[in-house]
Computed example of a mutant assay.
Amino acid sequence: MRIAICDDEKRICAILAEKVGKICPGAEIMTYASGEELLGADVLPDILLLDIKMPGLSGMDVAKTLRDRDWRKILIFITGEEDQVFNSFDFHAFHFLVKPVADEKLKEVLENAVKDLKRSGAESGKHDKYIEIQSGTSHIRVNLSLLLYAEVYDRKTILHMKNESIEYYGQLSVLENLVGKDFYRIHRSYLVNMKYVERYDRTSVTLTGGDNIPISRREYDGFLKAYLEYSRRRIDS
């Protein structure tokens, strides 16, 4: 298990590293003095303690870049200003620690993070969920963790994956029943993976990569409820 601490104050990095090492003996502890240094690392951590307010790239900038790289492990923000917490909900942080970080709180949050990591299988590489479709004469195994959204167009369903698009003849309602509760049908023609939602309003949802998907007026309240439940599952599961 790798635990990284990113804070521009080297003294705080050293103090946290020592405390984390005692709480999680056996873990590999890495420290970074800037967001740029962290993003340039060869290996990313399983758990990241990330300062929000840093010169250069802020913690928010770093978190967004990590999400764009599909890093979906455990993020714990550290902040000296409590109101910063409300500006960072979109990043699905596991928890927020306010400076000066109390030893008991750090221990509680880290122990829960380790439990969550083991439960989700993130450290060891949990098997992703797949479905099988037929496209033309080909049978294709689709990794749902890589599916951003699906749309219906000209009687075909198009699966917009992270690196490709797959077309097949099939009903979106059938796909909706297969993919599970991490997806939501925001429009009769669109089914989105909430994992990749970057922002939303009453008229559209913007996904990782920039695709902007319309949301029907009657589905907004249902989507909002489902998205909040999804966010809660990520924190409490």
Rank of each mutant, 00 (worst) to 15 (best):
E167V: 07
E151F: 07
I140W: 01
E151V: 05
E198N: 06
R67G: 12
A63K: 02
S58E: 08
L16E: 10
V85E: 10
N87S: 15
D116V: 14
I5L: 03
G209V: 10
V142G: 10
S189F: 02
P100H: 07
P55M: 06
W71I: 03
E108F: 01
K225H: 15
F183R: 00
K118P: 08
R233V: 06
A150H: 01
Y168E: 00
G26C: 08
R155N: 11
E81P: 05
G121E: 10
D221F: 08
S138T: 13
A113C: 00
E82C: 13
V114D: 04
L178K: 15
S58Q: 03
D68T: 11
L175W: 00
L146S: 14
D42W: 09
C13I: 03
F91V: 08
R233N: 08
K126Y: 15
L159G: 07
E36Q: 15
P25G: 00
L178S: 13
T203N: 14
V114M: 02
I133R: 10
I186M: 09
G210R: 08
K22H: 09
D7K: 04
P100F: 07
M161N: 06
G222C: 11
R155C: 06
T137I: 05
F94A: 01
C6E: 09
L207K: 01
I166V: 14
R234H: 13
E9S: 10
A41Q: 13
R188D: 01
G40I: 06
K225Y: 08
I3A: 05
H139I: 12
L207I: 03
Y184K: 00
F86G: 13
S88Q: 05
V174D: 10
V197N: 08
L159I: 08
S58H: 00
T31E: 15
T203W: 04
R234C: 10
E9H: 11
S58T: 09
I78G: 05
A150Y: 01
D211L: 04
K129S: 11
E81L: 11
L147Y: 05
K115P: 09
H92Q: 14
D211T: 04
R232E: 11
N143P: 04
I52E: 07
R188F: 01
F91C: 05
A122P: 06
L159H: 04
S216G: 10
S58I: 04
V179Y: 02
D182W: 03
G80D: 00
V85F: 06
I133V: 12
H95E: 11
I133Q: 12
H139R: 15
A33G: 12
L172D: 08
K195S: 14
S34M: 04
L159V: 12
L144Q: 06
Y230S: 02
Y190G: 05
K181P: 08
R72T: 10
P100A: 12
K126M: 15
D7M: 03
